[in-house]
Amino acid sequence: MSSPSLNAAASRLVPRGSRMLVLLVVVTVLIGLVIWRFHESVPLVSLLVPLLASSLVLGPRQLPWFVVFVLLVLALVVPSQDRIDLRIVLTVVIMFVLGFVVLASSLRRTRLGVAGIQGETMFVDLRDRILRQGGIPDLPAQWYAASELRSAGGTPFAGDFVVASRIAERLEVAVVDVSGKGQGAGTRALLLCGALGGLLSALPPSEFLDSANRFLLQQDWDEGFATAIHLSLDLTTGRYDIRSAGHPPAALRHAGSGRWEVLESEGPILGLIEDATFPAVSGVMRHGDALLLYTDGMVETRNRDIALGIDRMLGQAERLLRGQFEGGAKRLVEALGSRNDDRALLLVHRR
């Protein structure tokens, strides 16, 4: 019989979605028989192996029934023990408690509808796909750009993120700070990252923050606001437009004087005011100039005003970026900012 025929026969006998369940049932029965036959040397806790494995691979519909099956097998093999002492009783109690813990976790998974490993894999894959939108696209040789992110809890999920897109000879970048921090803001940041990444590529620069503001207003979240700064950069001429929505101002380093200039731009926070306007600050990046866009975690702490934090950041930038901009974003993020807040920074340099 050919391999396709064998696969078809196997699928008819045991549906693909039930094969793992059948395997675990067989393993549980075998372990139960071994405990019954060799109860002197095989402990009851051996049944924890299929129980814990089921919590990783079975879906929310199959898992509760399998947990009940394992506990039933446990109840059947307990009489095989030579004597029922306190150790046996405690083992049974602990296994029943673990069974109920697994049942409770399966009830939470019913909201997602997939097994533990599958659900985690889906979530990680979703996170990676969305965060790839924040990657800086390939730029002409005369331009260098890099972004760095750090979360308050040290996890890949944070309330700060960067989205970037190159459209012909224009670089469009937005640095966004979602309300909250760490994992608490992570889910909203993931949703916004995907939405704003699409808006950034599809709309003219002058309409990006307007549309982002409308999108946030439509979500009707309890903490439904965010700050953002948007850079639209002509890669041929170096001309830029910067629009801000309640965000710390960008900073431009003039190569001629070696001085940093704070580019003050005003605009309301996203998600609070309908029909808000976001005026642009325009200029030209000349050869040797550098531009910094960042979130408030880089410059603001409980004990320091944001203006003082910007001065400190620019002082560190003068020292850390002197003569070497490659890798500068990472050096600045590691040297500055509060470890109790999310941080994001974008560095653009015209060589």
Rank of each mutant, 00 (worst) to 15 (best):
G246R: 02
L216W: 01
A228R: 11
S282L: 03
A228W: 15
L252M: 12
G271Y: 01
T227F: 06
L235M: 04
S232F: 01
G271F: 00
R239P: 04
E274R: 15
A250K: 04
D275V: 03
V262N: 08
W260F: 08
A250H: 02
D234W: 00
R239H: 12
R253N: 09
A255N: 14
A251Q: 08
G238K: 07
L272A: 03
P248V: 01
P268I: 02
G224C: 05
A250Y: 01
L217F: 06
H287C: 07
T236F: 08
R243E: 15
G258E: 11
R239I: 06
G246T: 02
P268H: 05
H247D: 10
A245T: 12
M285L: 15
V281Y: 06
S244C: 07
R286C: 12
G267L: 02
E261A: 06
I273L: 04
D220Y: 03
L231V: 12
A228Q: 13
V281M: 04
R243H: 14
P268S: 03
T227C: 08
R243L: 13
S282D: 09
R239F: 05
L233T: 06
P268F: 01
L216P: 10
I229M: 11
Q218S: 15
R253D: 05
E264I: 03
T236E: 14
D289A: 10
F225S: 09
T237W: 06
A250G: 14
S282R: 06
A245R: 08
S244M: 00
P268N: 02
D222P: 04
L217C: 09
